[in-house]
Design a protein around this nucleic acid. Structure first.
Lengths: 333, 333
DNA sequence: ATCGAAATCTGAAACGTTTAAAAAACTTAT
DNA sequence: ATAAGTTTTTTAAACGTTTCAGATTTCGAT
């Protein structure tokens, strides 16, 4: 910057003014400064700027597993919205590990990010003053227990209800569920929706049809095998996320059980492969891109209201999911 | 920091020393400083530190599409290696858009990242002095034209050769290819491997069996339809990446053509769904995690050698891929 | 007690920006 | 030509660290 100033024959304050497009600098100077900047291939140092200004224009995003297609999709929404407002994204992976998550949170604080988007793997953590005071957080996908604001999630209860209703309407009575980690809202809410639909239809929820997975492929295989090896196996299965569905399908091929002929499957989370392989999966499709976009918008609103010291209350935004009926579900015989 | 110093009754220099675990500060002081730090919930300001030190301990990573499973997988490798050495990751999406890529590159420079991992969507760009001088770059996945060093990629020629050989060894003669963007090394190398195998087996490469896609799902559908609608359709298809394979499979279901009965398919890129649906895909599996890990290690070596001003020449590291034979390929009749 | 050396601590400058206040350079009206 | 007003430019202080040279304390030996 000093070099630019020297070359253009002005002070660094003037250079700063033209960089920030302040008015009050003559066209002549503006031109020569711009000229000098490109001659020297000068790019402003954002870390110095951040230090002075007290904000970094980067926001952190913590997800439990980048490798789960779901998160990159919401990231796209976040990124597009962020770019429009000049923010950069710092993506981090917590590996479903609460310790790692805490560690990342304090790292992001040290990096002085302007805000955080968090898909928490730790429902029990107290995201209170301690953390709250540091920077604005918007929760995505998963709602920590007791959280009543600043979040954007899918209406999981409704979505699971719809999925289960669909199976019921096809005449299924023996409907199993492969649940995820019920310590997470995504886990328990989907179970709640399933329960609700079953009860409404006066169908019993048999203990042996209620399987606890943990959102991983392995648990999907395990639960699938257990379920289909029962003396009285279910005629339909509701699997609570994409990875477990993958495992479930694997177990079905292993057991040489045909879907949907022998058993109908409805899955949470829709992805490209779900529609292009056999069987084409009936799934509950979340508005992933929208979740990311809305969450980023909410975060931006919070950041701005903090800047202007204006009051601002952001509630929980719940997006609807959509049931996509394809070939993996069929009428009960 | 001033507050910490005041509370502990020492100077900020001393605080700095204990933070950085310099020797030469008495146990007594150390204790009281640490005490004050936790009392005040003090976390060092990394942006100030970066300004002073001239490095940020963050490295940038630019990929063409986060939504392609492949990249999150290499990101895992990068991240694990980075964490060990205290580096943070800034992940960016270029959307396969060269302009966007240039823009990100200069943004990352302004952010003063210590290095960049780049899966470039722009083979023609001159990554020369201009960019090179700014920060160390290691190329991943895709080799820009003329690049002869500082890259870690898969041996795509060999991999494609293996895949094609596999089809040939099953007795196929009419073997089609759905190529990707041949302006990218991943596109042209895979074609080269295919050609090599075909020529070695004295099989003609028929113009109509040579299809140009662009690594997207849509192009996969398109090419699949064209191929199978030929009066003399191929008995085997080599598809050059995961997304196009998805499209290809879709086209087969649309046309009601059974794989592998009517046509064998071998795909590039192995993922969870490839092994768990019908047909279970025969794929070429890249060492995604290893690519990320090795690239990060290489970048670290470059960064360190620049710091010590020692000479250092990093060549292109080529990792082998592995052919996983599953159910989508079968003997020609 | 005093000295010298070793150990420990501190003051102040620097990193590259932004910005308010002061200064300088132009206008225009007299 | 000058005063007053307006526009443009510059000076200098700050942002939160690190670090080096110098200052202070501690301690063992005399």
């Amino acid at each position: 910057m000093h070099d630019v100033a020297r070359l253009a024959g002005v002070s660094i304050a003037t250079v700063s003014s033209v960089i920030n497009e302040k008015n009050g600098v003559s066209p002549k100077r503006t031109a020569s400064v711009k000229d000098a900047m490109s001659k020297l291939d000068y790019h402003p140092d954002l870390v110095a700027r951040s230090l002075k200004l007290g904000h970094t224009k980067v926001i952190g995003m913590i997800v439990p597993d980048v490798t789960n297609q779901y998160y990159p999709e919401v990231m796209r929404g976040v990124e597009d919205e962020a770019r429009v407002h000049g923010y950069q994204l710092m993506l981090c992976n917590s590996n479903e590990n609460p310790d790692q998550e805490q560690h990342l949170l304090s790292m992001l604080f040290s990096q002085r990010v302007d805000g955080v988007l968090l898909a928490s793997s730790d429902s029990t953590a107290v995201y209170d003053r301690q953390i709250r005071r540091r920077f604005p957080i918007v929760f995505i996908d998963r709602l920590p227990s007791g959280c009543t604001e600043r979040a954007v999630i899918t209406n999981n209860v409704q979505a699971a209800y719809d999925a289960t209703r669909h199976l019921i309407s096809l005449g299924h009575k023996r409907i199993a569920i492969i649940a995820g980690n019920i310590l997470l809202s995504t886990g328990s809410d989907r179970v709640a929706g399933y329960r609700q639909a079953m009860q409404e239809a006066h169908l019993p929820i048999r203990e042996e049809y209620f399987r606890h997975g943990d959102f991983t492929l392995e648990s999907g295989i395990q639960c699938g095998l257990e379920l289909m090896n029962l003396k009285n196996p279910p005629t339909a299965i509701f699997s609570c996320n994409n990875k477990m569905t993958l495992g479930l399908m694997r177990s079905l091929t292993e057991l040489n059980i045909s879907c949907p002929k022998k058993v109908s499957v409805v899955s949470f989370d829709d992805f490209e492969w779900a529609a292009n392989f056999t069987p084409q999966l009936t799934t509950v499709s979340q508005q992933t891109y929208e979740i990311g976009k809305s969450a980023m918008q909410m975060l931006l609103r919070i950041i701005n209201s903090e800047k202007n010291k204006t009051q601002n209350k952001e509630d929980i935004l719940m997006l609807q999911a959509k049931l996509l009926v394809r070939d993996s579900t069929t009428r009960a015989k």
